[in-house]
Design a protein around this nucleic acid. Structure first.
Length: 201
DNA sequence: TACTCGATCGGA
DNA sequence: CCGATCGAGTAA
C-alpha cells in the first residue's frame, strides 16, 4: 500500500505529466527520527530552457545545474531572500525541468510548506529517497482527472504572455475525494476494500 | 563591483 | 499595498 517512489520513476516523463502524477502522492519528511507526511495538493510544471518562466531559461548556471541532472533529485532555492522553494527535478538528463510543490493537504503556499516541514537548501540536489530525509510515497490515493484543475502558474508574469498563460498549475481538493463512493464502486466491480487503505489503486 | 529583481508572505 | 531580505544573473 504505502510504496516508496524511486528517483528513477521521475525520469520517465516530462514535468507536466509528472506534476499531474504527483497530485495525491504523499510527501514524506523524516528529520531527527520524526516522520511527517502530507498529501500533495498543488503543483506547477516548469519545462526546460524554452519555458521563460523556468529558471533554466537562463541556461546552465550554478543554480540551474541541478535541473539538468536526471530526475528524482530536489531543487531547492531561496525566493525573495526569505522563502525556500521545493521542486522535484523530472525527466532525463540534460532536459532541465522541475515540478514546484506549492501545497500539501492543510498547507497552502510553497513558502509555508517548506517552513512547516523544515525544508531548506541543504536538501538541494539530494535524491528523493528516504536516505535524504525527503521522499515521495504512493499511498494509493486516486485523483480522478475531473477533480484536477489546471490554471496558469502563479507569479510568473515576467515570463511574457505566452508562457505565463500556460495552464501548468494543477490542484485538487482532497476533501472532495469521495473515498467511500470509490470503495463502493470498487466493491461493485469485485474488488474487496483493504482496511486502512485509502482509495487503493 | 554595482546594480536589479524575484516561482512569497504577513502585516498595515 | 508594502517591506523584508539575499543571492542569482547581468552589465561593466
Amino acid at each position: 500500500m504505502a510504496r516508496v517512489m524511486a528517483p528513477e520513476e521521475f525520469r520517465e516523463t516530462g514535468p507536466v505529466a509528472a506534476a499531474r502524477g504527483l497530485l495525491g502522492k504523499v510527501l514524506v519528511r523524516t528529520l531527527r527520527g520524526r516522520r511527517t507526511e502530507r498529501v500533495i495538493t498543488e503543483v506547477e510544471a516548469y519545462d526546460g530552457e524554452r519555458d521563460l518562466a523556468c529558471h533554466a531559461s537562463k541556461g546552465r548556471t550554478k543554480r540551474t545545474e541541478v535541473m539538468y541532472r536526471p530526475g528524482g533529485v530536489w531543487y531547492v532555492y531561496l525566493c525573495y531572500g526569505v522563502h525556500e522553494m521545493l521542486n522535484l527535478v523530472t525527466g532525463p538528463a540534460d532536459c532541465p525541468a522541475a515540478v514546484l510543490i506549492r501545497g500539501v493537504a492543510g498547507i497552502a503556499g510553497p513558502g509555508r510548506l517548506t517552513k512547516a516541514l523544515a525544508i531548506d537548501r541543504s536538501l538541494n540536489a539530494a535524491a528523493a529517497h528516504p536516505d535524504s530525509g525527503l521522499h515521495v510515497e504512493d499511498h494509493g490515493v486516486v485523483v480522478p482527472r475531473r477533480r484536477v484543475r489546471a490554471t496558469p502558474r502563479i507569479g510568473v508574469d515576467y515570463a511574457g504572455p505566452v508562457w505565463a498563460a500556460k495552464k501548468w498549475r494543477f490542484t485538487f481538493d482532497p476533501a472532495k475525494l469521495p473515498e467511500s463512493k470509490q470503495r463502493v464502486r470498487r466493491v461493485a466491480r469485485g474488488f474487496s476494500p483493504r482496511p486502512g487503505t485509502q482509495n487503493a489503486g
